[in-house]
Each structure stands twice: as structure tokens, then as C-alpha cells.
Design a protein around this nucleic acid. Structure first.
Length: 420
RNA sequence: GCGAGAGUAGCUCAGUCGGUAGAGCGCCGGAUUGUGGUUCCGGAUGUCGCGGGUUCAAGCCCCGUCUCUCGCCCCA
């Protein structure tokens, strides 16, 4: 048997209904906030990710699906989508339009990690990027959008963690101070934390060693090292979030794994997701466009892990998405009634009613059984007697009741049932 | 990349001391030639992940390998 490749999975019905509903909701929200969709290739030059995500990051270091094509070009399946969006922004000179570009995307991403709960080698992200606006109000609107989206999905009590990682101008001073603070502790650190101290001291703040975490309470904080502009940006953002009644938690230890972030960074985690509990992450990246050869352009974005979001969805939203409210099952009562049923199906569909016709002609018992199993609420039954009398039988599969409806009134009758 | 656990029917799993494979659910057929979910009767479930080894004999023991699961690193 040929099976899926390690870390990849099939999404099967009826579960795909949940994914579709979720994506519809996301598209609605993006449209409400004035975003347009962008679609970028799954395959990009390896160089793009090395330059954007960062050579020191784990993603570039050990998690990319990279290969050479027949022309010797070094290619990579995208591990994230921000780089591709920014590449497209630069390649097509979108800055020339002089507008704030508000873009969203949906699609698969690839990282060659060891799979575990909530982590797959192919996973899907729903994300957005705003390019061309440095104002804190942009950050605020992004977080308001997220709050709105999660509210529509039925989440309550989710809280965004927020921090500022400053800019290239003020961060080095902080890193020096942090290093000085951590140096005496290196002796007592575990292997992981000592490695982080070498490579990226900010990451030590994320330690899972409780003893070390306790001593970090005394550590210098980035917020104290912010330059005047970054501090003003941060404080303006907080004021605007308060004004909008968006709940958040300042987390001075929040640092993120991609090298391109500046100033605002944020994250939302959810319980019951296991060890991989980050539902979304994002931040501002005021340097990235220039780094990729474009005009100096500020940007901010986020990415939601769609796979994780689906598994964290409130039950009510899931169940509602699984219902096939709009579809009626059509059952031909006899072997010879299928031509009539097909004609009726066409009439109903032309009127906008979704019809699931079982072509096997196995009779009412099996037809109704299948309809119930597929989750349909209504079944329309037609046979020779019904044809002669110009009627159809409409059965409510849950209540087991049956109405006799003249064919001429069938569309109106079904529409009334479906909408109620 | 590192660590631990698991892999037997479509699904969830049992399988004793090594003796040639089972249950429940689901599926199919019948009781029921035009009315489903309940009930009753009957039926098929299979490369015991794959390869090798030990043995008279391996689902069971040993080695390798693949996949899955959970954790680490890291991230969505």
C-alpha cells in the first residue's frame, strides 16, 4: 500500500466541512477589514528564506525541504508565507502604488520537523500582512481583527501575549546587558540554555528550567531599553488596545524565532493543544522589505496555524459546520424511477437547492439509511405512484415524519424547510 | 536531529507458557418485492507494518527497518 509521506496527512469528509467553514469565516473577516487575498508559489528560491527568516533560525538551519532542480537552482518548499508575500511586494513594485497594502493568504507550508501533536510537516496557515504603514494603529487593527475572528469562531478567554523587541538600534544594548546578566549563571545552566546563550541570548528568556526561570525575574527587560520612538509606539498601541477593549498580557519574555521581527511581537496560545500550543504568532518587521531589495517599507503580519486552530475550535462551531443544513437527499423508490429522480434533481438544483442523489437505486430502506448516515436532514422520495399523482414525499429524517407535497410546490416547500 | 512508547479486520482492541488469529463496533445479505437508526438470523473480514534471524514451530523471542504517537529542540 502506498501511504502518505511522513508528517503529511489527508483531510477527509466530513472533517473538511469544518475546514471550509473556518476558511469562509476567515475570508469574511479579512474582507470586512479591507484585506485582499494574495497567492504566492509554494516553491521559492532557497535564498529567499535564508535572507528573510534568517540563517541562524532553526527553520533555515534544519527544517527546510530543499532540493536542486534539473537546472541546478536551489529551491525550497516554503516554510512560512511572509517571505513570499514580501518577495512579491518587491518583485511587482507594489510600493509604487503609494498605498497601504493589506494582504491575506491561506495555504500549505512545509517544515521537515519530527511530527508530533499539533505539528506536521505539511501544515496550513492563515495569515495576513500589512505593508507600508509604521503606525501603531496598524498593529492595533491587526490585533482587533484577530480578536474579531476568534470571537466569531466562538472562542472566549483567549488572550494575546504582547511584547516589543525594539529595533536594530536599541536591541544590541539590551542583548549586551542580558548577556552580562546571564554570564555568571552559565555554569548552572542546562545544555540547551547554554547553547541559546551563545546563539541568541533572548531565547534563554524562554527557558523551561524552573530554577533558571526564577532567577530570570531579576533579568533586565527589553522594555527598559527601548528607544524613545519604539517606546512611544508600544505605549500608543497599548492605549489603542485598551480603548478597543482588546484583552492582552504584556509578556516581557516573549521572543520569537524568526530573525526579522522589530518592535511589536505577539502570540496566542490555547490549552489542550499539547506541547505545541501556539495558535498564532506574528509581529512587526520594519526592515524585511529593504533586506529583500525593496524600498524601505514597514510591515506587520501574523500567521495562524490552521491545523491547530481546527483542533482547538469550540465544539459548537465544529458541530454547526458538520451539519449539512442546505442539502436534501433524493431517493428513487423503485429501479425504474431513477430517470424521473434525475429530472427532479435538476429542477431542484436549478432553484438553488442542493440535492444529494443516490444513483444506486437500492430501494427506500437503503436509500434512507444512507441519507441519515450522511447527516442530511431531509429526504425527498419519488416513485411511480408519486409520479402519477404529481407529488413527492418529503421525509424529515430526524423526526421520521413525512409530508405529501405537490411537485409544483416542492421548491417552495423545501426552501421553507431548509431556511427554518 | 535527540529520547520514550506503539504497530493484529474498515475502526477500537484482546491474544495466556512460542503450537498456525479473536471480540465489539461498522460493513454485506436475509427476516421485510415501496420507508432508515431498534431487534433477530447469517456472512466476509487479515501480507499479525516490512525484512531477516533463532526454533520442529513465531502475532509472541532477537536484530534491522518503516510508520504512527508522545516528549525535547523549535515553531503555526
Amino acid at each position: 500500500m502506498i501511504t502518505t509521506v511522513k508528517g503529511m496527512r489527508d483531510l477527509l469528509p466530513p472533517e473538511t466541512r469544518v475546514w471550509n467553514r473556518l476558511e469562509e469565516t476567515a475570508r469574511e473577516v479579512f474582507a470586512l477589514y479591507g484585506f485582499d487575498e494574495i497567492r504566492t508559489p509554494v516553491l521559492e528560491s532557497t535564498e529567499l528564506f535564508v535572507r528573510s527568516v534568517g540563517e541562524s533560525s532553526d527553520i533555515v538551519n534544519k527544517e527546510m525541504f530543499s532540493f536542486e532542480d534539473r537546472g541546478g537552482r536551489r529551491l525550497t518548499l516554503r516554510p512560512e508565507n511572509t517571505a513570499g508575500v514580501v518577495r512579491a511586494y518587491v518583485e511587482h513594485s507594489l510600493a509604487q502604488e503609494g498605498l497601504v497594502q493589506k494582504l491575506y493568504y491561506l495555504g500549505p507550508q512545509f517544515r521537515a520537523e519530527r511530527p508530533q501533536k499539533g505539528r506536521f510537516r505539511e501544515f496550513r496557515q492563515i495569515g495576513a500582512e500589512v505593508l507600508g504603514a509604521a503606525d501603531a494603529a496598524t498593529d492595533a487593527e491587526i490585533l482587533i481583527l484577530l480578536f474579531d475572528l476568534f470571537s466569531r469562531l466562538g472562542f472566549t478567554g483567549l488572550r494575546v501575549s504582547l511584547n516589543s523587541v525594539g529595533t536594530d538600534e536599541c536591541r544590541p544594548a539590551y542583548v549586551d546587558a542580558l548577556r552580562a546578566f546571564l554570564a555568571p549563571l552559565a555554569e548552572s545552566m542546562g545544555e540547551d540554555d547554554r547553547r541559546r546563550l551563545e546563539q541568541n541570548p533572548l531565547r534563554v528568556l524562554d527557558t523551561k528550567d524552573p530554577a533558571l526561570a526564577e532567577r530570570l525575574a531579576e533579568a533586565p527587560q527589553m522594555l527598559a531599553f527601548l528607544d524613545a520612538e519604539s517606546l512611544a509606539h508600544h505605549e500608543t498601541l497599548l492605549a489603542q488596545l485598551d480603548e478597543a477593549a482588546i484583552p492582552y498580557t504584556i509578556d516581557p519574555r516573549l521572543v520569537r524565532g524568526l530573525d526579522y521581527y522589530t518592535r511589536t511581537v505577539f502570540e496566542v496560545t490555547a490549552p489542550n493543544l499539547g506541547a505545541q500550543n501556539a495558535l498564532l504568532g506574528g509581529g512587526r518587521y520594519d526592515r524585511l522589505v529593504a533586506d529583500l531589495g525593496g524600498p524601505k517599507t514597514p510591515g506587520i503580519g501574523f500567521a495562524i496555524g490552521e491545523d491547530r486552530l481546527v483542533s482547538a475550535l469550540p465544539e459548537a462551531y465544529r458541530l454547526d459546520a458538520l451539519l449539512r443544513k442546505g442539502t436534501v437527499a433524493l431517493v428513487a423508490l423503485g429501479e425504474d424511477d431513477r430517470a424521473d429522480a434525475l429530472a427532479l434533481a435538476r429542477t431542484l438544483r436549478a432553484a438553488g437547492i442542493a440535492v444529494d442523489f443516490d444513483p444506486r437505486g437500492r430501494g427506500p430502506g437503503d436509500g434512507l439509511k444512507a441519507a441519515g448516515k450522511k447527516g442530511h436532514a431531509l429526504a425527498v422520495l419519488v416513485g411511480s405512484r408519486e409520479r402519477e399523482q404529481g407529488i413527492a414525499l418529503v421525509k424529515n429524517l430526524a423526526l421520521r415524519t413525512q409530508d405529501i407535497v405537490p411537485r409544483a410546490e416542492l421548491v417552495t416547500f423545501l426552501k421553507g424547510k431548509i431556511s427554518s
